[in-house]
Design a protein around this nucleic acid. Structure first.
Lengths: 352, 352
DNA sequence: TTTTAGCACTCTCGAAGCGAGAGTGCTAAA
DNA sequence: TTTAGCACTCTCGCTTCGAGAGTGCTAAAA
């Protein structure tokens, strides 16, 4: 078996056809069927010869002698990198999607679920979107609100429009007035500063302010290693009705990933550790490294402004996924969200 | 076929056994098996006679002649109302659960996901918990925070510790200072007032304040009809591995309910329209009324303080659900959360 | 009157057997 | 280089069949 061979134009064309046919029907594709369905100007025998070559190269395999061919993981990989990667989303789809976002442009909160829903519908698989998360966030505004007894709601607004909130329990009850004063003092001291700069400040004289500051720092740091908490999911049911998820336990187990957010976060961090924006990452069938992704594929991209605020979005489905729809959609959505994020950030800089 | 007949002690006992056996094995239960497994002091023939009676009453049925019996929906209903309804959760389980909540007592935000997780684990099915939602909420504190350009984060704290936030887009940019002033003025005017009282106030002179007030009222009203937005889910994968969800399309479709939150909200409103706290509601196999719940059952309860703040929690699974575990767990969790909510509210009243 | 032993009967389920169909690889001719 | 022809292989769906489980009924025992 040879590997990494260059394919002829015709072989590429056939591989393309076979992958598309298989992703559609979930059935091994045979030579005669292929000729008939696509009205090829070749005889089944010729196709068989080419198929034999592609099988030799490791791009196709037969579930058993005398069944049709199905793509191997390498076959999908070739298909993705050499055939479909550069494809663009059709103009009509781009238009529709842009329009949907235009309608929701005021309500930032809607962006993530909308993106997830669009991804799910277009890829007919499960989708996930994480909120954009400022990488070098600066303090913008702090608010402390007494809710009940010793419980205080801390709302922290960072540059980039990111809002964090946390419920604190203080050692003893404090009046709203006292809280407001503390917040005002801290706002004055921290305004426009990064985590490092805040950390370098001389310790606060006031005990309450000191405690709060510690919590602010912890909160700003927390999400620099981890992902921001919110992950928006959609389209799980798409994937549930696929035959591979009905039959195989392996695949079914992968769905647990989506339920346990912590597992999902972990996976995202492992697949896309760096924060560069631009490429679409495709993990096919786990590729040896991801035991839990056997029989599944993931198409991921990072969006936003590198170094400032980025998030991730992607699609999860069976290895036999419609990459030719999914990859362009993921890329387009990433670009679109990047645009929205940079508009937001630009607006903010003008403001100052 | 007679209906609504009174059962003898022994018949009740057998129905009990059969339901439990079937929920465990998912196989029709036969007379001989039952005798052997539970060492009954009766012959299979006697059991068969009793089974025939129970079948006549409509509590059991046979998938086909000469298979064992399985409970009908009426059978489950009898089991639930006459046999298992009063059962208590074992002391050990109650203790463990209380302990888990004790450990998380500071962090109110953790209550809902914790409750969902416990419900899912104990019932081995899917669970859902909605956040408690104040029914006659009073205004406690308003905060307006400029995030970026014309976007303003409104944080509204109501009595009961409920926090609502919404991102507003104003007609034109406004400074943080101006926002703080508006918030201060509104806080003064609205403090401790209910929606109705606020609505009855004379209109604000200031245009910004007037706009904000309109939004506050809308927001306070919004959730009095609908459920509060947050629904916490857990344990979906438990239910996915049940045989009825692998085989039947009906059951699989029910899972979509869990993905589309709006469908789920709708369902909850229909199943539990009133706000009385105390009972556990059990919907078995849709009971004719809920087409989308064929083959599924739902065990729901409302918790909180009626008239003040209530939420819902429950379990979703196949009709063949372990009611004898699920119902006591749901009831116990509802009581427990009710306790937590009333503590919160009591604490608040002392404060005033 | 209630319980049970015995028995005939019914139905499912898995194994085995079998033939059709789809697909392949190879060879030799176009 | 392509293709027609052919022998071969393997799956899949269908049928058959017997074992096993379970029932209902009857008549005897308690």
């Amino acid at each position: 078996m040879q590997m990494l061979a260059d394919l002829t134009e015709r072989q590429r064309f056939l591989l393309n056809l076979i992958v598309r046919e298989y992703t559609e029907t979930a059935q091994p594709v045979g030579s005669r069927n292929l000729v008939e369905k696509y009205h090829l100007d070749l005889s089944p025998a010729t196709i068989r010869n080419e198929m034999a070559v592609l099988t030799d190269f490791g791009y196709l395999r037969q579930p058993h002698t005398s069944a049709g061919r199905i793509p191997t993981e390498e076959g999908y990989r070739y298909f993705v990198t050499h055939i479909v990667y550069q494809a663009d989303l059709p103009e009509a789809a781009r238009h529709t999607i842009s329009h949907q976002f235009y309608q929701a442009r005021q309500d930032v909160e809607q962006w993530m679920p909308l993106a997830a829903s669009i991804l799910a519908r277009h890829s007919r698989a499960a989708s996930l979107v994480t909120a954009p998360h400022a990488e070098r966030a600066r303090h913008k505004h702090l608010e402390l609100i007494s809710t009940q007894g010793r419980q205080v709601l801390m709302v922290l607004v960072l540059t980039g429009g990111e809002v964090r909130q946390q419920l604190l329990t203080l050692a003893e009850p404090v009046t709203q007035k006292r809280l407001s004063e503390a917040a005002a003092a801290l706002n004055l001291a921290c305004n426009g500063k990064t985590t490092e700069e805040i950390a370098a400040l001389p310790p606060r004289a006031d005990a309450l302010e000191k405690d709060i500051l510690t919590l602010i720092l912890a909160d700003m740091n927390r999400d620099e290693q981890r992902l921001s908490g919110e992950i928006y999911l959609d389209g799980l049911t798409n994937v549930l009705s696929e035959p591979e998820f009905l039959g195989s336990d392996d695949a079914r187990r992968a769905i647990r990933l989506f339920e346990e957010r912590s597992l999902l976060q972990n996976l995202l961090m492992r697949v896309m550790p760096d924060s560069s924006v631009g490429g679409v990452q495709v993990v096919i069938g786990g590729e040896g490294k991801w035991e839990e992704l056997k029989q599944c594929s993931v198409v991921l991209a990072r969006y936003g402004m590198p170094g400032q605020a980025t998030g991730m979005l992607g699609v999860f489905g069976p290895t036999r996924m419609a990459y030719s729809r999914t990859i362009p959609t993921v890329r387009f959505m990433a670009d679109l969200l990047s645009g929205l994020v940079s508009e937001t950030i630009a607006g903010e800089e003008n403001e100052q």
